[in-house]
């Protein structure tokens, strides 16, 4: 707790606002979210699809384009000047930190490599300006980096369509780490891969993170992956962060009813108990429920849940939860 966080997200709010053919919609996809990421830490974000994980990611990364709008709050990186979000920052400043300090592994990585460009040129496009030096220096560095990740340098000659899905994802990870960034945002990087490849890719992320000492913000809906990979974990539901803490604590003692459901739905070998699903469906964010957004599906819901939105409260060391039904000291 003494170290300065590398990323501090503070009451961040971003909404989708659209008006088309006369229908106005406002969707609070990121609603008042706060958390910190420490150096050399993998912070996981979990939640169902359309719970706002990707939007949160984009907002933090400053990739805010209409109809998404930043409503309020901050997402502050330690390598940026104080009190500046990436969104709206000086373009020259952004150009300096992009890839050298902050890089990304995106959702749907199958399509993030320009289909009409050789891998070598793609590496050069992204990284040459940060690494500098002559072409042959850069080539040597790229080859070294690839072999560190146990990738054959011949991939540099390939076009993306000539590589398999897993291979493409590994190339993307190599691309995202070649400048040894302080912070990596990884959005569902393994979702589209089969289990074997998924395991290899996760191992690769883990080892390169250890080696470089970077922080990773890792988003996936797969709780199994979180258990295996992350140090800290945040649970999202309907645009809100409902629980955050050390991954081990959350798995051992989940507090929020939604978290409990997520964890208990994980299969265990030898377990024959019939798993019960949650009733109902995730809420339509264009018209979210009043009070706690989880209350229509919550087994513990009481009157206060229907009217008053629960705030994040500290209940143990580095463990916060937003639920009226969970007792704890006020944060």
């Amino acid at each position: 707790m003494t170290t300065q966080p590398i990323l501090r997200v503070d009451h961040l709010k971003a909404h989708f606002r659209s008006s088309y053919f006369g229908v106005y919609r406002e969707v609070p996809a990121v609603d008042d979210i706060s958390f910190d990421v420490a150096p050399n830490e993998i912070f996981g974000l979990a939640g169902e699809s359309s719970s706002g994980k990707t939007t949160l990611m984009k907002t933090i990364a400053g990739l805010i384009t209409p109809p998404l709008e930043l409503i309020g709050g901050k997402a502050q990186f330690s390598f940026m000047p104080p009190e500046t979000n990436l969104y709206g920052a000086d373009p020259a400043q952004l150009a300096r930190i992009r890839w050298s300090k902050l890089s990304y592994i995106m959702q749907g990585s199958m399509n993030v490599l320009n289909p009409l460009r050789q891998i070598r040129s793609i590496f050069r496009d992204f990284a040459a300006v940060h690494i500098g030096g002559s072409n042959s220096d850069f080539e040597t560095k790229t080859v070294n980096h690839l072999s560190r990740l146990r990738l054959d340098p011949s991939v540099l000659d390939a076009y993306p369509h000539e590589l398999s899905g897993g291979m493409r994802q590994r190339v993307t990870i190599a691309l995202a780490t070649i400048c040894r960034p302080d912070f990596i945002i990884a959005d569902e990087p393994t979702t589209a891969l089969d289990v074997i490849v998924q395991k290899e890719v996760l191992g690769m992320i883990r080892s390169i993170q250890r080696e470089m000492g970077s922080s990773v913000l890792f988003v996936t809906h797969d709780m199994g992956v979180h258990a295996a990979l992350t140090d800290k974990l945040g649970i999202m539901y309907a645009g809100c962060l409902v629980e955050a803490g050390r991954t081990a604590d959350i798995f051992n003692a989940p507090q929020h009813p939604y978290t409990r459901h997520l964890i208990h739905s994980l299969p265990r070998i030898g377990d024959t108990v019939q798993r019960t699903g949650l009733t109902g469906t995730p809420p339509n964010l264009a018209n979210p429920p009043s009070g706690c957004r989880f209350h229509p599906r919550c087994p513990l819901a009481s009157d206060i849940c229907r009217t008053e939105r629960p705030m994040m409260r500290q209940i143990a060391t580095e463990h916060r939860v937003a639920c009226h039904a969970v007792a704890g000291d006020d944060a």
Binding site: S18, S19, Y20, K58, L63, T65, P66, P67, L68
Partner: peptide
């Protein structure tokens, strides 16, 4: 339609 709204993501 999306690009009309100004977005596209």
């Amino acid at each position: 339609r999306l690009s009309r709204m100004g977005g596209g993501q």
